[in-house]
Simulated scan of single mutants.
Amino acid sequence: MDSLNPDHPPLTATPATPRVWKFWGTAVWGLFIFVAMFVGQIGAVLLLAAQRGLPMDLASLQLVGREPQTLALSVIMGLPATLAAVWLAIRIKKASFVDYLALHWPSWKQLLFGAVGLILIVLLWETMSRALGREATPGFMTDLLKTGRDKGAALLLLAAFAVAAPMSEEVLARGFLYRGWSASFLRAPGAILMSSLVWTIVHLQYDMYFLAEVFAIGLWFGYMRYRSGSLWLTIVLHALNNLTAVVLTMWLGS
């Protein structure tokens, strides 16, 4: 038999090279995904303005967009747009959506470790805020959440900030961007740093102090993505962080 003949060794299957966008491909598609998210969010504002018969001008859109219900729907509508854009980018590579984004459930130990680390980071920033005499939550967010609560939009805001926003942002940052950049010359450390920076830029409505906090939390999320190999872990941690902030601001006045 050929398998026993040294002149004709048995054929061995060569593992297929993972189909992954590398540095520039990930960067370009990441920009496309961000634009898709923005279009989805703006689309919700345009739809609500049209339903009210308002003119499609900047003043009308700003008026509608400042309402808590509109903002919540805008964040929610950004999720399907983000998922569609990510699916397209991965589909072109003919890769598995689940495997590309590491949509695998983490162990309870990993979840506990990630939660403890997140709590310590948040407590550290809370302590720094008190020492500096700063508010723990940006003022405009406090006003938005309390106004939304008083106008009966509490559940909608919870769905937006504790479900839709974590999923959209994690799929983009720790999902798509981390996956591609970690397979490039950046490797895991560079991918953690770059994806955290992009995630911070998404929150430019905050001042520099809160942006520094967002960046620190992003580094922890990136490390947990690397350590666990699970995007679901960072989605859950992100959701818990946002849920706690929303509940405390709405009902406990913190």
Rank of each mutant, 00 (worst) to 15 (best):
M1C: 14
M1L: 04
P15T: 04
K22S: 08
T26N: 01
V28C: 15
G30L: 08
F32P: 06
I33N: 10
V35G: 10
V39C: 11
A49H: 00
Q51T: 00
Q51I: 03
Q51C: 04
G53C: 04
P55A: 07
E67R: 14
T70W: 07
T70E: 02
L71Y: 11
A72Q: 06
T82L: 01
V86E: 03
W87K: 04
K94I: 00
L101I: 07
L101E: 11
A102I: 03
H104G: 06
Q110W: 02
V116Q: 12
G117R: 03
L118R: 06
E126W: 14
M128T: 12
S129W: 02
A131M: 13
L144G: 09
K146V: 09
T147Y: 05
A164C: 12
R174Q: 12
F176W: 14
W181V: 02
G190V: 10
I192L: 04
L197P: 03
W199T: 13
M208L: 15
M208C: 09
Y209T: 08
E213R: 15
I217H: 09
F221D: 11
Y223N: 15
Y226E: 01
W232Q: 08
L237P: 03
N241Q: 15
T244M: 09
V247K: 09
L248A: 13
W251A: 05
